[in-house]
């Protein structure tokens, strides 16, 4: 196990290097004038621009390896460059948005994963009954409509009509409290900071803003987890030891909870890692619908504007995260799977 973790960390630099080369070579397929579009994002701004001067100012016509070594030279010194699409240094752009996305992901993961598993188990237990069919149809709907459709509908119902869950991350009053000198930003997570500063209004307000995106994410991801849990649960239920347990007269509830569910969860855990990452990356659309300023929104913006230092920054940050998450998954795999645990 320890060896495995060490190996993981040893290959980390190679993967990060590979990612930078991949992204860089994609972007360098474009000519200098095309890449200048990073700096001019509105046709109206073209007027009066001396484009050749701008190109040489940003060094866009240098050979790609020079541009790459300039960039990597900065990275070695902890400088990921300037992100034109964010109007901030890349590191700052990522770290200022990271708490928002983390907060969203943290609060979303529990209802999404637990709800998905719960529904999946129910659906498997009621295999081929009406309940199963309904769940499957609903989950297909959840999976078949683009996320933005649900996002807008959630916004319409819970904000437009009911007025409960507004878009954005904070309302103006709560934001003013957070800006005030007495308020200490411990973590950047609004809910947590609100609790630590004993500002119940901030906690409440931050939470209100989280629900819309969470509900939207839940609709989309439930169907995914549900599907995996269901099929894995079905498979487990047909296994010999379950049949034996049933034959022995063990109560059905006990069979499902104690024997079947645990084993059925193994494949779920394997997909949980990529899923958390998917949640983080997949917030692109949810964040833009809800006007929620996070990493997803930034990634989309940087990609559209061909802001290469921005994309590289996000990609490297995601690689780090991916490796970290996979590590956690492997450990929990060992915890759940008795065969590995015993070794």
């Amino acid at each position: 196990m320890i060896n495995y973790i060490i190996r993981r960390f040893l290959i980390l630099p190679f993967i990060l290097f590979g990612v930078t080369i991949l992204v860089f070579s994609m972007i360098m397929m474009l000519g200098p004038y095309q890449r200048l579009s990073t700096y001019i994002n509105d046709p109206a701004q073209l007027k009066g621009q001396d484009m050749d001067k701008l190109i040489s100012k940003y060094g866009l016509d240098d050979p790609w390896y020079e541009q790459y070594s300039r960039w990597i030279g900065g990275v070695v010194h902890g400088d990921f460059g300037w992100s034109e699409s964010a109007g901030q240094p890349v590191t700052e752009a990522i770290f200022s948005r990271f708490p928002a996305t983390l907060e969203l992901a943290l609060f979303a993961v529990i209802p999404v994963v637990m709800g998905g598993i719960w529904l999946g188990v129910l659906s498997a237990v009621h295999h081929n009954q009406k309940f199963d069919h309904i769940i499957r149809i609903i989950s297909t709907i959840g999976w078949s409509f683009p996320t933005f459709v649900f996002g807008l509908l959630v916004l319409m119902i819970f904000y437009g009509v009911l007025g409960w869950f507004p878009p954005g991350r904070l309302s103006a009053d709560a934001a003013a409290i957070i800006r005030s000198a007495e308020f200490v930003r411990y973590t950047g997570l609004n809910v947590l900071d609100g609790i630590l500063n004993l500002e119940i209004n901030v906690v409440f307000d931050a939470f209100r803003h989280l629900i819309g995106p969470i509900v939207t994410l839940a609709i989309v991801w439930w169907s995914y987890i549900l599907r995996i849990t269901r099929s894995s649960m079905l498979e487990t239920l047909r296994k010999d030891y379950i049949r034996t347990a049933r034959a022995k007269g063990v109560a059905e509830k006990f069979v499902i909870n104690k024997h079947a569910r645990r084993n059925a969860l193994i494949p779920v855990v394997t997909v949980a890692g990529p899923m958390v990452l998917g949640l983080l990356g997949g917030v692109v659309i949810v964040e833009s619908v809800f006007g929620y300023r996070g990493i997803g929104q930034y990634a989309a913006q940087a990609a559209q504007q061909l802001d290469y230092s921005g994309i590289l920054g996000v990609a490297m940050y995601f690689s780090f995260l991916l490796i970290l998450i996979n590590l956690i998954v492997d450990v929990s795999y060992a915890v759940i799977d008795p065969r590995i645990r015993l070794e």
């Binding site: 807008l152 916004l155 319409m156 904000y159 437009g160 007025g163 507004p166 878009p167 954005g168 309302s171 103006a172 003013a176 833009s288 619908v289 809800f290 006007g291």
Partner: peptide, 22 residues
Amino acid sequence: KTAIIRNVDEWSTRKLMLLRGD
């Protein structure tokens, strides 16, 4: 006391904010 310019690119979101009076 306070004036705020918010940037929200999604039209439907802007529309709802106006209708709610936010």
